[in-house]
Design a protein around this nucleic acid. Sequence first.
DNA 1: TATAGTGTTATATTAAACTATATCACTATG
DNA 2: CATAGTGATATAGTTTAATATAACACTATA
Lengths: 126, 126
Amino acid sequence: MPDPWDNKQPIYKQLRDRVADLIMDGAIAEGDAVPSVRQVSAEQKINHITVAKAYQELVDEGVLVMRRGLGMFVLDGARKKLIIAERTKFKEFEVPALFERLTHLGLSISELQAALKEIDRTKKSK
Amino acid sequence: MPDPWDNKQPIYKQLRDRVADLIMDGAIAEGDAVPSVRQVSAEQKINHITVAKAYQELVDEGVLVMRRGLGMFVLDGARKKLIIAERTKFKEFEVPALFERLTHLGLSISELQAALKEIDRTKKSK
DNA sequence: TATAGTGTTATATTAAACTATATCACTATG
DNA sequence: CATAGTGATATAGTTTAATATAACACTATA
């Protein structure tokens, strides 16, 4: 398997997004510890400072809290908070950008809808 | 007005996308010259090498051609070629990523559709 | 009280993107 | 043929991201 990182965004940003997704999905529950900096660093073969930088972003967002000597933990209420914040980002920036993209490509909203439903069917049937 | 560049992608990539959009929209017609490297460099206050790098990508894609001493020109058939290539990128990569994004945010395809139509109505009524 | 596991900090190095300045080769036009 | 407008090239410097290596401070536990 090739590296799971693309070069369109810094690794620490991608890692932050990944952890945020896991929290929003409930795969990492509130109160739980997030995988340790050293563990992620070793498993993903990336520098521990890169991992710490990703976690620090989530600390700044009020999603994670650091307990000295213990690790980083998901705060209570973090899941809802994250989803609200990400939905706002989505509607404010990503949806308008998507609309522009459709316009330039000469594609309709219906065509996008069809493509999304196609993926939905594919996922459900496995 | 702040800088029209975001920091999520290198400037030369963003510039390449902008020019590609102009060509797909027909704002720059086939056979026309694209704004000169020096002109863009001066207007946007970015280095000329950054501009040349953006244009070079479009040359490599078979969209632009360089005529020594004259400038860079949009090739015949480039518009259609670009639209086909960009639509492929869209369906192969962007739509699946969008589907995942919706899943993580707990949003439905219908909700996205509604948000897009809202933008559509806003744009049409101006 | 060692030991191992947390996150943090410090130093040095590499690579990519971007910048500033200057110069070169080619083309059309006065 | 001089001039101004093309893109390309060369040199050197800054910034950001990421790396490698080492050491530090704190916490739980054997």
